[in-house]
Amino acid sequence: MDLAKVQELVFEVVAGLVADWDLDAEIGATTRLVANLEFESIDIIQMVVAFEERLQRRNLGFEKLLMVDGRYVDDLSLGQIAAFLHQRLAVAA
């Protein structure tokens, strides 16, 4: 799957997640989970599940995206998530 398609998938999954949240935020590559979409820890876990369900794969290695040098990252953009997923899917292919 090329990066554009992965990005499209990320936007679609995240838009579905936040559909009932009464947010007034754009969904795009620069959209940030915490700053723009008011994500909490549990929402990140749900997002990971949603990607795994959509891609029909577990163990995509999201811990590598969520933890850097043993510390949890503060925030992530949808562009970062798409790039990570694109790279992981290429490894698995």
Binding site: E52, R58, G61
Partner: peptide, 12 residues
């Protein structure tokens, strides 16, 4: 199967 274990997985 454990979750979608039947599906291809990234190396654990």
């Amino acid at each position: 199967s454990a979750g979608t274990a039947a599906e291809p997985q990234v190396a654990d």
